[in-house]
Simulated assay, not measured.
Amino acid sequence: MRRGVRVLRWAGWALAYVLGLVALVFAGVWVWWQPEPEARGTVVNALWARHQWVGEEHTEQEYRDLGRLLRENRITDVFFHAGPFEADGTVPPAKYRNAGKLIQAMRKHAPGVRAQAYLGQIRKVDGYGITDLDDPAVRERVLRTDATFLDLGFDGIHYDFEPIYTGDAAFLELMERTRELTRARGRVLSVAIEQLTLVDAAQPVYRALIPRGHGRFHYPPRPTKKYLRDLADRADQVAVMTYDVSLPTRSLAGRHFAWHTEQTLRLIGDRTTVFMGIPTYRPMFDWAEDLPVALRGVRRGLDALDRPPARPYGVGIYAEWTTIPPEWALYRANWLPRGSA
């Protein structure tokens, strides 16, 4: 009986110790979160846009409104959803039947804003998924499809294949060849990728214990530092999908955005243009993640840098179809440099 009491007592002390440490972490992050960021944002920013712009007819007024929105908010790059790829690496023309009119409208109403073809699919991994990038014939058809969109007048190709795991040589090879294509045409290549892994050394453990794939239980497809550098060396722009945080407090969510901004820009900010992805939607689980938290967190990450990156950087807004006027106003007030809005 006495032994059982001692065990329960020690267990209680251990639990109290752990809870105390957790409380200290929460308190420390809360204190860190309070000061107003000093850094302002930039006028180099991206926006993911819905498929209807390339797939459906629009009025001249709708195009005019889109152009005004992009100019007012200093958007330099728009990723117009133009896919997804079929399993064989093609995109049926019916899916982008309005692309030509869109490009003409962009030239008229948003001159200087790059309209990129946003293309991707669920990447086949370990037998699960749709597009098998390990197949050279599929990669060839992807490249031919890219050329079709460039012929239509798009200013670049924006890839969003998911999941992409560290060490995916086929995807790197596709990036290399796509950049050869875009550079030959005087266009750009951008890529959306998951946020950095927190600890690179944990990747081998994940691989050994948890399967890859698309099921509920799989290890996250986060790039290591080396793999992110490899991608950056093959892209003109890297958009980091920093959203879907699912953390319980605003200060923790903000710390997430700050950490990834600082680490990513230190790592590849001198190699390529970087867009830190920020959300204008509410996650499935309504935690603390929203646009104000994301913008403040990115700015805190900029504050932590010793110097600005050598290449342009900004935020990537996800997404055009979820951003309402009050959020655009908040973005202008809290991100754009003073005097630029």
Rank of each mutant, 00 (worst) to 15 (best):
A184P: 10
P220L: 03
L66T: 07
T166P: 04
K108I: 13
P223M: 04
R250N: 04
A329V: 09
A137C: 09
R255K: 11
P92Y: 03
E173P: 02
A169I: 09
F257S: 05
P84E: 05
R2A: 13
A82V: 07
E173T: 12
D126G: 11
V125M: 10
L330V: 09
L196C: 00
H81R: 14
G269W: 00
N334P: 05
G28F: 07
M284H: 13
P279M: 10
E180M: 03
D286S: 15
R307A: 08
P136A: 09
R2N: 13
E86V: 04
W33P: 00
G4M: 13
A87V: 04
L265S: 06
R144K: 14
V7Q: 13
L150G: 01
D151H: 10
D146K: 03
S251A: 15
I75K: 01
P308F: 03
R177Q: 13
V18Y: 04
Y128H: 12
V188W: 06
M276F: 05
P37Q: 05
T261C: 03
Y128M: 13
A147S: 13
R212N: 08
Q195C: 03
N98A: 14
V91P: 04
V44D: 11
I193V: 10
V44P: 00
R97Q: 14
P283R: 14
L231H: 01
W10F: 09
G339I: 06
R311W: 12
V205T: 14
A288M: 05
S251N: 11
R207C: 06
T178E: 00
R107Q: 11
Y243V: 00
M276G: 00
T249M: 04
I210F: 02
Y318F: 15
L19C: 06
G254N: 02
T224A: 03
V205G: 07
V188E: 10
A170D: 12
A319L: 08
D306F: 04
Y165Q: 05
G269P: 00
E57S: 15
D77T: 15
Y219H: 10
T182D: 11
R68P: 09
A235H: 00
G339R: 06
G112N: 04
S340N: 05
I210W: 01
Q263H: 15
F275I: 03
P220N: 11
L21H: 04
T242Y: 14
E320L: 07
L143Y: 07
E162S: 07
L69D: 08
F257D: 01
A82L: 10
Y165C: 08
T249W: 06
D306S: 11
Q237K: 11
L15G: 06
A117H: 00
L302R: 07
L119A: 02
L291V: 08
R332C: 06
L8R: 14
R296M: 09
T264D: 06
A110N: 09
F285S: 10
A239W: 12
T148R: 12
D132C: 03
